[in-house]
């Protein structure tokens, strides 16, 4: 393995709790709650909605009535829900990971150990970018997929207990198709995440204390100041532009797939999939990669790259923190 590989591995060692255990625990709890819900629904013979995104009622009713196509759609929704849940976990984990990435080792002075090794600051910072936009999402996706497979086993057992063959429903779902489409969204996610990655790494490298406050309060004050300037009747940026195109891209850009909603009507269709729309359509490559035709993505990528370069530059000589 080369130096860069070791650097990424180092990130994994240090942040295994967030990158690996957090999604495992969350999806485990989700599956457990679903299982409990099913058991309760069965024993009470009632149609309790098993909450949390997995449309159990749809799946079980359609399977019972032999509507395997829509049962399969229900399974697709469950897969997307599991993945979506882990996206939320991912957001928090990676947000705080990036804020600490170039700060924590300065605070505990272990930066002096890392800097005593023949590793350039550029590789160090880029390894943290790679951990955030490649390693962590891949682990998250793998765990979501495993959790979905466990769910399929649960559904299968339930079906067999009711004398239903689960295979037609599973066959009507799009497990593999969705899996590939999720994978295909990762490069776009990474590109869209660049401004946030750069913004958080920049403050992580810059702050002598409390990188979180810098990263969050600077945009907040900019927003408030802009509103005041507006109230005074002076030229200012539109609130919507500042929030949607600047602040949320600097702070929330690492949320996987958040741009799908922005990309048009398609994402809202997930709520209407039972009316016959195809889940695959939402994540279709032409839809996902259509985003690349919008200039905002590239402007953000340039800004993000500039911020990462600034973080590398700061990393060169900024070692002390105030604590």
């Amino acid at each position: 393995m080369n130096t860069f590989g070791w650097l990424v591995k180092r990130e994994y060692w240090e942040h295994k709790g967030g990158f690996y255990w957090a999604p495992i625990w969350v999806s485990g709890v989700m599956l457990l709650l679903t299982l409990l819900g099913i058991v309760v629904a069965e024993s009470a013979a009632s149609r309790i909605e098993v909450n949390g995104g997995i449309p159990w009622r749809e799946i079980s009713e359609r399977m019972s009535s032999g509507d395997f196509v829509h049962a399969g759609t229900g399974l697709d929704v469950a897969y997307v829900a599991l993945a979506g849940l882990l996206c939320v976990v991912f957001f928090f984990v990676v947000f705080f990971y990036l804020l600490g990435a170039l700060y924590d080792d300065r605070r505990d002075r272990s930066v002096l150990f890392w800097k005593s090794l023949p590793v350039s600051d550029t590789s160090t910072v880029l390894s943290k970018v790679a951990a955030a936009v490649l390693l962590a999402p891949l682990i998250s996706m793998a765990i979501a997929t495993l959790a979905y497979i466990v769910l399929l086993v649960i559904v299968g057992i339930w079906a067999l207990l009711h004398g239903i063959n689960p295979l037609p429903a599973i066959g009507a779902s799009h497990t593999l198709g969705l899996f590939w489409r999720f994978l295909l969204t990762l490069p776009v996610d990474a590109l869209v995440a660049l401004p946030t990655v750069g913004w958080l790494l920049f403050w992580s490298a810059y702050a002598r204390s409390k990188p979180f406050l810098w990263a969050v309060l600077v945009p907040l004050f900019a927003f408030i100041a802009n509103s005041w300037i507006g109230l005074m009747g002076l030229p200012h940026l539109s609130k919507e532009f500042l929030y949607k195109d600047v602040i949320s891209r600097l702070l929330f850009g690492i949320m996987p797939g958040w741009w799908l909603e922005d990309g048009g009507e398609k994402f809202r269709l997930t709520r209407n999939v039972f009316r016959g729309d195809d889940m695959l359509e939402v994540f279709s490559p032409s839809h996902v990669y259509g985003l690349l035709a919008t200039p905002g993505v590239w402007v953000g990528a340039i800004v993000g790259t500039a911020l990462i370069v600034a973080a590398i530059w700061l990393r060169r000589s900024r070692i002390e923190t105030s604590s």
Binding site: W13, S110, L112, S116, L117
Partner: peptide, 29 residues
């Protein structure tokens, strides 16, 4: 840093790392 080593003060080794990981990492880079 390929030719220069330093021990800057005591206790600057990262506290989370395992001894085996530290050896693997230094051996790697």
């Amino acid at each position: 840093m390929e030719q220069v080593c330093f021990i800057a003060d005591v206790a600057v080794l990262p506290r989370w790392i395992r001894v085996g990981q530290a050896i693997d990492f230094v051996a790697g880079v």
